[in-house]
Design a protein around this nucleic acid. Structure first.
Length: 171
DNA sequence: GCCAACGTTGGC
DNA sequence: GCCAACGTTGGC
C-alpha cells in the first residue's frame, strides 16, 4: 500500500464536502497534469491512503485523510456534458445552474480519453496542519509537497513521512 | 494582487 | 527536437 497527498481547493471541494457526499465518496475530478494523472491512473491502488490537503486558500494545510476506492476511469468533466453532445460542451450543470466548465478538454474524446481519475472515500477529518507547520519539521524536509517550486496536485508520501505525520502531528 | 516556478504549446 | 511565449499554480 502506498501513501499520497492530494490537493483540493476547499472552495471547490473541501474535506467537509467529501464527508457530506453520498457514501462519502467523490471522483477526484479536474486533474489536468500528466504526472498527477499517471499517479492516479497507473500507480495508485485501491486501499491507498492520502492526506486531503487544502490549497489555494488563506491557510493551506492538511485537513484530513481519504482512501482510494476505485479503479481508474475517465474524468467526465473533460467531455461535453451530454452523451449526444447537443449541449454546449463548454458548460457544465451545477446545483446553481449552468456554468462554464473549466475542465472541458477539446482535445480529448470518449473513444480516447486523456484524463483519468479515481474515486476517494472519506476516512477522517484531522487537526488542521498548516503548510507552515509541516515546513518546521526536519523529518519532513524531503516531502515532495515541500520541494521548491512544487505545483503537483498529487504527490507521493513516503512511509516514514506518513508515519511521522500521523503519529506526531495528528495523534 | 504579485510573482516565482513550472508545464504546455506551437513555430521553426 | 529546440525553445520562446504563454498560461497556470499556489504561496505569500
Amino acid at each position: 500500500m502506498a501513501y499520497w497527498l492530494m490537493k483540493s481547493e476547499p472552495a471547490e471541494v473541501s474535506i467537509d464536502d467529501l464527508a457530506a457526499a453520498p457514501q462519502q465518496i467523490l471522483p477526484w475530478f479536474g486533474v489536468r497534469n500528466y504526472q498527477a494523472r499517471n499517479f492516479m491512473r497507473d500507480t495508485m491502488q485501491i486501499g491507498d491512503l492520502a492526506f486531503f490537503y487544502h490549497s489555494g486558500c488563506a491557510k493551506p494545510g492538511i485537513a484530513g485523510i481519504c482512501q482510494v476506492c476505485s479503479e481508474p476511469y475517465p474524468d467526465a468533466t473533460q467531455f461535453a456534458p451530454t452523451p449526444n453532445g447537443t449541449a454546449n460542451p463548454t458548460t457544465i450543470e451545477t446545483t446553481a445552474g449552468p456554468r462554464v466548465n473549466p475542465y472541458f478538454d477539446p482535445k480529448s474524446s470518449r473513444e480516447k480519453p486523456r484524463w483519468w481519475l479515481r474515486d476517494v472515500r472519506f476516512i477522517s477529518k484531522s487537526r488542521y496542519i498548516l503548510l507552515a507547520e509541516l515546513r518546521d519539521h526536519p523529518e519532513l524536509a524531503n516531502m515532495r509537497l515541500l520541494a521548491r517550486g512544487n505545483r503537483l496536485s498529487i504527490t507521493p508520501v513516503s512511509d516514514a513521512e506518513w508515519a511521522f505525520i500521523t503519529r506526531n502531528l495528528l495523534a
